[in-house]
Computed example of a mutant assay.
Amino acid sequence: MESQDHHEAPLAEYQVTSYLRANPQFFEHHTSLLAELYLPSPHGQGTISLAERQQLAQRDRIRVMDAKLAQLMKYGEENDAIGEKVHRLSLGLLATEQVAVLVSLLEHSLREDFQVPYVSLRLWAQPRDENNGGLPAFAKVDQEVQRWAQGLATPYCGNHPGMPLQGWFGAEARPAAFALMALKAESVFGVLALASDDEKRFYPDMGTLYLKRIGELVSAALLRHIVV
Rank of each mutant, 00 (worst) to 15 (best):
G83T: 10
M73C: 09
A70N: 13
E107N: 14
C157D: 00
A182S: 15
K184R: 15
Q98W: 10
A173M: 11
Y156V: 08
Q25I: 00
R88H: 12
V191H: 03
E199Y: 03
I214M: 14
I82R: 08
Q146G: 13
G134D: 07
V116Q: 11
A9N: 08
F138W: 06
D113A: 01
D60V: 05
L93R: 06
S109W: 01
R59A: 10
V119D: 12
R88C: 10
R122N: 09
R21M: 12
W168D: 00
L91I: 07
S187V: 11
K212S: 13
P10R: 00
A139K: 02
W168V: 04
A179W: 02
A177T: 04
H87A: 06
R21W: 01
P117L: 12
Y14H: 09
I82Y: 08
L222S: 04
Q4S: 03
V145A: 12
L217D: 08
H87L: 12
P40Y: 00
Q55E: 04
R128K: 14
S41R: 03
M1N: 09
L183W: 03
Q143G: 15
S196H: 14
E130F: 00
W124I: 11
L69R: 02
D80N: 14
V103I: 11
Q143Y: 07
Y38A: 13
L123F: 03
L20W: 02
P164W: 00
L50F: 05
T31L: 10
M163N: 03
Y210I: 03
E186R: 11
R111K: 15
A12S: 07
G207F: 06
V227T: 08
T208Y: 02
D197I: 00
L222A: 02
T208Q: 13
R201Y: 03
F202Y: 07
G162K: 07
Y203F: 08
A12C: 09
R224H: 06
S41A: 11
A193M: 08
I226V: 15
P136F: 02
A51N: 10
Q71C: 01
K74H: 12
A35G: 15
Q15D: 09
Y203Q: 11
R53H: 13
Q15C: 10
V103H: 12
